[in-house]
Simulated assay, not measured.
Amino acid sequence: MQVQNTKSFLVVDDEPLVRMDMAELIRENGYEAWEAANASEALGILERAGDAFIGLITDVNMPGTRNGMVLANHVRAIWPHIRIIVVSAGRKPFAGELPDNASFIHKPWRPEQVVTAIGAV
């Protein structure tokens, strides 16, 4: 894997169509988008090229031992420069669950919500 520029986002969602739609929206707005199906796959990508990413968009509920909240907090600790956007169809995160300066978008998300959130990067 070779990340081409430093305008890259990593999209993490176990639902392939949701992940592809989000990645396409990111590309349409001038950014490079990488995709991962779960937190472990995302961490593998970040371990190889974390400094090249400016943003992470992750779903909360995913298979495996790490959900999106755990991933978001781990990414903040290791790569503090990465802007984090958490999405979920479930409950809104409690105070303190999200890392500092992270955004939350409730599913189903609207394109303008995502564009606003990635533009804040």
Results as ranks from 00 to 15, higher is better:
Gln2Tyr: 15
Gln2Ser: 14
Val3His: 13
Val3Phe: 15
Thr6Leu: 09
Lys7Val: 13
Phe9Arg: 03
Val11Glu: 03
Val12Ala: 14
Val12Asn: 04
Asp14Met: 06
Pro16Thr: 13
Val18Lys: 03
Val18Ser: 10
Val18Asp: 05
Arg19Asp: 12
Asp21Trp: 00
Asp21Cys: 09
Asp21Leu: 09
Met22Asn: 09
Ala23Lys: 08
Ala23Thr: 02
Glu24Ala: 12
Glu28Val: 14
Asn29His: 13
Gly30Pro: 10
Gly30Cys: 11
Trp34Phe: 13
Trp34Glu: 07
Glu35Met: 10
Glu35His: 04
Glu35Pro: 02
Glu35Arg: 04
Ala36Glu: 05
Ala36Pro: 06
Asn38Met: 03
Asn38Phe: 02
Ala39Gln: 06
Glu41Lys: 11
Glu41Pro: 09
Gly44Ile: 10
Gly44Arg: 03
Ile45Leu: 08
Ile45Pro: 04
Ala52Arg: 13
Ala52Trp: 12
Phe53Lys: 07
Leu56Glu: 13
Leu56Phe: 15
Leu56Cys: 15
Asp59Ser: 11
Val60Arg: 07
Met62Lys: 03
Pro63Asn: 08
Pro63Leu: 08
Pro63Met: 05
Thr65His: 12
Arg66Gln: 08
Met69Gly: 14
Val70Gly: 07
Ala72Thr: 14
Asn73Lys: 10
His74Asn: 01
His74Met: 02
Val75Gln: 01
Val75Asp: 01
Trp79Leu: 11
Pro80Met: 14
Pro80His: 12
His81Trp: 11
Ile82Gln: 04
Ile82Tyr: 02
Arg83Tyr: 11
Ile84Glu: 02
Ile84Tyr: 08
Ile85Gln: 02
Arg91Leu: 13
Lys92Tyr: 05
Ala95Asp: 12
Ala95Pro: 10
Gly96His: 07
Leu98Thr: 12
Pro99Met: 14
Asp100His: 11
Ser103Asn: 10
Ser103Ala: 15
Phe104Gln: 03
Ile105Arg: 01
Lys107Gln: 08
Pro108Asn: 06
Pro108Lys: 02
Trp109Gln: 01
Trp109Asp: 00
Trp109Val: 00
Arg110Ile: 01
Arg110His: 02
Arg110Pro: 00
Arg110Ser: 00
Glu112Ala: 01
Glu112Cys: 00
Gln113Trp: 01
Gln113Asn: 06
Gln113Thr: 00
Val114Lys: 00
Thr116Ile: 08
Val121Thr: 09
Val121Trp: 00
